[in-house]
């Protein structure tokens, strides 16, 4: 997508993303410095993002796409830390793989690192009192994935509207969402299952006290 997002929008999304990423960097550093176990947990969640976002998964209708892998991090450390980690992953893909892009980095960080994780985190908080940790993680990861691609659709919709009015933006957003939705629905479910399995495993290792799981647990 390098160079396809108009410069003005590249600047807008970058400027909007910077404060979240800066705050996330501080939160990440303080988490890493807490103790060796928290540091290892941060590394596990970050590596999980690395692995899952490297998967190019086939999906329905002959198309393929990537999971985001951010759901586990959202559940363990919240959206701010996730914002910082997604910058690292997206930079790797932009620089080494020419995938995504530096001009689209701000927009991608905003969708995959900020809004997606934040909405997923809100969903997690909402369902956690009623669901088990694994099921709540499933919800968080699936919602994070779907929201990420919905935000991408909105970003493309405002950059390439079908007309000059809000209705044109909406129409274009729906067109772009149609490209992503079919592909992303099953991938979001898969992502939820993998994140839930990983959280279950971490629980069995008895490593999870002191992180952000304690929402009425």
């Amino acid at each position: 997508m390098e160079g396809f997002l108009p410069p003005v929008w590249a600047v807008v999304w970058t400027v909007l993303a910077v404060p979240f990423v800066a705050y996330g960097a501080r939160r990440t550093l303080s988490a890493v410095r807490t103790d060796a176990r928290t540091k290892a947990l941060v590394a596990v969640a970050a590596a999980f993002v690395f692995v899952l976002s490297a998967l190019k998964l086939p999906s329905v209708a002959g198309s393929s796409s990537h999971p985001t892998g951010t759901g586990l991090m959202v559940v363990l450390f919240g959206p701010a830390v996730t914002a910082f980690v997604s910058v690292i992953v997206l930079l790797y893909q932009a620089v080494l793989l020419a995938h995504g892009g530096l001009t689209t980095l701000g927009a991608n960080v905003f969708s995959m690192g900020i809004v997606g994780p934040f909405v997923g985190w809100v969903a997690y908080r909402a369902v956690r009192p009623r669901l088990s940790l694994e099921r709540a993680t499933f919800v968080a990861a699936a919602v994070t994935d779907w929201t990420t691609y919905l935000v991408t659709s909105v970003q493309l919709g405002v950059a390439f509207p079908a007309g000059g009015d809000p209705a044109g933006v909406l129409a274009a957003t729906l067109d772009f969402a149609a490209v992503f939705t079919v592909t992303q629905l099953p991938i979001g479910v898969l992502e939820g299952l993998l994140a839930a399995a990983m959280v279950g495993y971490l629980c069995r290792l008895d490593t999870l006290d002191g992180t952000r799981l304690g929402v009425a647990s």
Binding site: S63, S64, S65, V179, T183, P186, L190, L193
Partner: peptide
Amino acid sequence: TVALVVFLLATAGGNLAGTDGQAVAEI
């Protein structure tokens, strides 16, 4: 999980268009 992966692989067919490529085509 396994069933979902198998389903996705089985229904994928031959040529897989990446969604970002499809989005560029839409642009």
